[in-house]
Amino acid sequence: MPVSADRLPETAAPPPGLVVVGRYDQPEGYGVTRPRGAGSWLFTWTTGGRGRLRQGAAEARAGRGDLVVLAPGVRHEYAVQPGAGGWQFWWVHCQARPSWAPWLRPYGTGDGLFAVTPTPAALHERIAAAFGRMLADARWTGSGSPPATAPEDRVAVAHGTVARELALSALEEIVLLTAAAARPAAPPPGIDARVLRAAELIAADPGAPHTVRSLADSVALSPSRFAHLFTRQHGRSPMRALREARLGHAARLLESTDLSVDRVAAASGFASPFHFNRVFRERFGVPPGAYRAGGPMVEP
């Protein structure tokens, strides 16, 4: 059932400012061709089956967990991939926020087609929930509470300002999650990817109850092997790196919040305020209260 949208401007190019979202379950033979492209961006997220998307001379095959994005103004077509039996996918027509461009750019394949793939399976549930929330929020009138859910066989058009911004915020979450996770940065030369991952866990949440064993478990290494690799590659032990990260986190909290020193200590992973005061003074040259009042004596 191929369709040409060239004569359907309301389908091919939703008016600027609108957000149109839906979920399709299409059988073999389904396809859409837009000879003039669309006036809006098209985002597709495949949940099952397989699709084939073309934009100008660029082409992408979409399987489960693939986000494929088509920029406006270029001839495009998309269809169920022959032999796949069907294609299940979420789709959104909208004007993309300019801030999304740096996240999508690394996945560009030419002619305004961006294939953000592969997205780890661990994120699929959260991304699907964001699409469902978008479908519900697009129907909100601005009074009462937004709908908790919406039937997935519906197509929603976000007319109101608040509904549009809520829908775009959900789509922004999807763009960030997929673009950040689909193509992890390669570790620097000489750095073990498992050690890099542990360092990222420390930096992301220094106040968490990390231990050598918990960090080693997170990267599938024995504690002794992990500690050896980490110390060799970072020049300090995992626990020393953790203490430095916690002190840096505490310094930022002192600079940017009015939390009490005891609460800063607890939020930074220090069980004892006395111990926190002592190691903070050793690191920065002044106790936490004086640091807050006058700034650091020693650069972090």
Rank of each mutant, 00 (worst) to 15 (best):
R133T: 15
R252E: 15
E244L: 14
E244K: 09
A148V: 15
A198Y: 11
A71L: 07
L247C: 02
S268L: 06
G108P: 10
L166R: 11
G160V: 03
F280C: 05
E173C: 11
V219E: 08
A71S: 13
L253C: 07
Y291K: 01
P82D: 08
A158I: 04
L201Q: 10
A266V: 12
A265T: 01
V19G: 02
G39F: 00
Y24G: 12
R252K: 12
L113Y: 10
V68F: 05
A71G: 04
A198P: 11
G285W: 05
G285I: 00
P223S: 08
H76A: 14
T141G: 13
V74Q: 08
A57Y: 04
A148F: 14
R75T: 11
E299T: 05
L18P: 01
L259P: 01
G49M: 03
T141M: 00
R292E: 03
F43G: 10
E59H: 03
F280A: 08
S272I: 07
L254W: 06
F280Q: 04
L176G: 10
A186D: 06
T11A: 13
F131R: 14
P147W: 02
S214Q: 02
L196K: 06
A12N: 09
A251R: 11
W90H: 14
R252W: 04
A271W: 06
L70E: 01
D25S: 14
G51T: 05
A96Q: 10
L104F: 11
G65I: 03
H76G: 05
A136G: 06
G65N: 08
E255Y: 05
V19M: 07
V3C: 11
Y24K: 12
E244D: 15
R246C: 06
A96P: 12
A163F: 00
V20Y: 09
V155M: 10
N277D: 03
Q233M: 07
Q95I: 09
P187Q: 01
A241H: 15
S260K: 15
S4I: 09
P98F: 07
L229T: 00
H159E: 05
D137G: 06
A216K: 02
A250Y: 09
L123R: 13
H249V: 06
T231Q: 14
A71Q: 02
M134G: 15
R240W: 13
E59V: 13
V68E: 01
R34E: 12
G112F: 11
M239V: 12
R61A: 04
A60F: 05
E59T: 14
A122L: 11
H249P: 08
A167G: 02
A271D: 11
S143E: 15
T117P: 10
R281P: 04
P14C: 04
A250R: 06
L123T: 08
R194W: 02
A129K: 07
F230S: 07
V80T: 14
P223L: 06
E77Q: 14
R154Y: 12
H249Q: 14
P147Y: 00
E10L: 15
V3G: 06
A62Q: 02
